[in-house]
């Protein structure tokens, strides 16, 4: 009973926050609501028992996306970009109507689902042993459907190249983002010195734990990225130039490693085949590489394209 109350309250909160994020007059307020929204959704995932997803949502959905948006709002505001007026009521009504219809259809579809369908839970459980890992989600992510994950990591690479290619030509060869600085000894700088060791530890832990518990390269990588960004914001480190060979190696390393394992699998039984006896080590290696590249890539995504002189 209380469970139901909790669920209902959480759902209502989520919906309300979502509405606020969508309809909020102030853009900044909307973004803040969005961060809150991510947080609440992470609660929902937790409540549903999908801890891996909750981690991802907390780190990525609420965390990194929120930071990206906050930065963008600030950037636009500084650029003097004015907010457009809201749409006419008539158009709004039509749009709303159609959205209600769409949501209704989805609801109807949900209502029509077979309540006892178990999906692939059992199948995954049967094969978990051969996957080499104990966390079924990781097994799916990196073994059963490792191909998805391979493409996904490359998607991050694409986006990074895309973001970089939005630089002004004259800044090519420069460092991503703006040079950050903070008052030496100030709260920010101190924060930047304090938090990283903790974060680093948490990040590595989430990656390492991922094989058998909830967690993994994406969640861990995100934490690592956040840590690096924190340090950078504190003005303690600076991003290397986009042309730096080492930087590029870093962002490519994870996917390349993954691809190499995948191709090597051809000689061991098939594309992306991980022999059960080595699966765990292989997956951990891949996860480590991916975490590194993901961390670098995500951090660079938040930093944005080069905005400073080349050299």
């Amino acid at each position: 009973m209380t469970g139901a109350i909790f669920d209902i309250v959480l759902c209502l909160l989520i919906l309300a926050v979502a509405l606020a994020a969508i309809l909020g007059r102030d853009l900044f307020g909307s973004v803040v609501f969005f961060i809150v929204y991510g947080l609440l959704v992470a609660l929902a995932w937790t409540r549903l028992g999908a801890v891996d997803v909750a981690l991802a949502e907390a780190a990525i959905g609420a965390g990194l996306t929120g930071v990206l948006l906050v930065g963008a709002v600030a950037r636009l505001r500084r650029g003097g970009v004015v907010e457009p007026t809201p749409p006419r009521p008539l158009a709004r009504g039509a749009q709303m109507g159609i959205c209600v219809l769409a949501a209704g259809l989805v609801g109807a579809a949900i209502a029509g689902l077979d309540p006892d369908a178990a999906g692939l839970t059992a199948t995954v459980a049967q094969n978990l042993e051969a996957s080499g890992v104990g966390n079924p989600v990781t097994a799916v992510l990196l073994n059963f459907r490792g191909y998805d994950t391979l493409l996904e990591t490359v998607v991050l690479l694409v986006v990074l190249i895309g973001v970089w290619s939005l630089a002004e030509d004259r800044y090519w060869g420069g460092r991503p983002g703006l040079r950050q600085h903070a008052k030496p000894g100030g709260v920010l700088a101190t924060y930047g010195r304090f938090l990283p060791p903790l974060g680093l530890l948490a990040g590595v832990y989430v990656v390492w734990a991922g094989t058998d518990q909830p967690g993994g390269a994406f969640q861990g990588g995100t934490i690592l990225a956040a840590v690096w960004l924190l340090v950078a914001m504190a003005g303690l480190v600076d991003a290397p130039p986009v042309t730096a060979r080492r930087l590029r190696l870093t962002i490519v390393a994870g996917p390349a490693l993954f691809l190499a394992v995948a191709v090597a699998g051809i000689f061991m039984g098939g594309f992306l085949h991980l022999p059960p006896e080595h699966a765990k080590q292989l997956i951990q290696t891949i996860e480590a590489g991916l975490a590194l590249s993901i961390a670098a890539t995500l951090a660079l995504l938040v930093a944005g394209p080069p905005q400073r002189g080349a050299r």
Partner: peptide, 17 residues
């Protein structure tokens, strides 16, 4: 987009219907 989007969504709804 404020026109095309609803049309698009409407199409999805209409097709489903």
């Amino acid at each position: 987009w404020s026109t095309a989007g609803p049309v698009l969504l409407g199409t999805a709804v209409v097709l489903a219907a």
